[in-house]
Design a protein around this nucleic acid. Sequence first.
DNA 1: TCGCTTCCGAACATCGTGTTCGGTTACGGT
DNA 2: ACCGTAACCGAACACGATGTTCGGAAGCGA
Lengths: 186, 186
Amino acid sequence: MATVEDRRVRRTRAALREALVELVVERGYDRVTVRDVLDRADIGRSTFYAHYRDKEALFASCFEDLRDDLKREMGLLGTDGRPGDPFKPISVIFEHAHRHPQIYRAVGTSHLHQMIFEVMRDHLCTHDDLGLPVDVAAEYHASALVGILGWWVRNNFPHSPHDMARMIRELTVGGMARRRHEAAAG
Amino acid sequence: MATVEDRRVRRTRAALREALVELVVERGYDRVTVRDVLDRADIGRSTFYAHYRDKEALFASCFEDLRDDLKREMGLLGTDGRPGDPFKPISVIFEHAHRHPQIYRAVGTSHLHQMIFEVMRDHLCTHDDLGLPVDVAAEYHASALVGILGWWVRNNFPHSPHDMARMIRELTVGGMARRRHEAAAG
DNA sequence: TCGCTTCCGAACATCGTGTTCGGTTACGGT
DNA sequence: ACCGTAACCGAACACGATGTTCGGAAGCGA
């Protein structure tokens, strides 16, 4: 029956995560060594390896928090059963990134990609059949979305989350609408 | 007045490039060491560093050949001044990838991304104004294209290049056509 | 054949990684 | 406040990868 997590553990892990994110933002993931993280966080070497297998594991743990947070917000959209605005999820993603600029700057798009791909495929399966392989459409739209999200983050949020969602809607919905129309007519 | 390149240089560089590509396909870029490349190519250590600064430089040189080749093929499309099929470039890219499966499997999409983004932006500037920032549209379409290309390569070319180009056309053209129509009407 | 370039390979210094272990500190529970 | 335990420290170590140096051997083009 584990009591509340030891305060030392909390502080150690938080310091390590914060240090890694800072350093990755400053130099990029590849140019950060474990030693750098240790110095920045002021944590002993052996302590690091008592908590994480390696740098990659620490990085993943940073992203896990973020992912859970985002998934929770996404989950709130589908509670009432009604389909709702199919582009609302995009708004949510951009709002989320805008609220966590540091970690979105640090995290590569590869982690995000897998998650968004899955959301996208489920969405396409339930909402409409486009007359072409679902995986192709899902990969296409997921790549576009993650790519433009990364661009937006890298360029320090040159447009508001709302504007980004609107523009993506306009770039995307035409293709979908046209396919639906053809499918209905043919 | 440099004569033809020394045969030894040609053979050395070719062996190194081939070895690196093979190993990257087998294990992924991060899991390949310089030593691995040396063993596979049967080249001495000092010889390697006489030709390339590090592993990254060798990898870049692999991609340069490919890029020049692709750019040449792309260049052949615009020689007659007529606009032609705006989706022909996409066919060319997929045909090219299909003809060089090994190196496309090895090369990450990041190198490709920059190139395709530039082509896309130029294309959008000359062809049509979409009523939203060109950079946004270019990044969106470039990301989608590179993403789906990577997916196609990773999954061992589950559709023909022609089919891929067609599907992308259908996923893309609706959005563009709709924007053009609105701009003309409004 | 001749002169020059390239290649070889062993040795070396340097750096990052991940582990071990005995000693110290700080936490949570009572 | 006290105590047992868990976490932290830091120095030392083994290991592997990187990139450089240099003298000698071999292959190239002319």
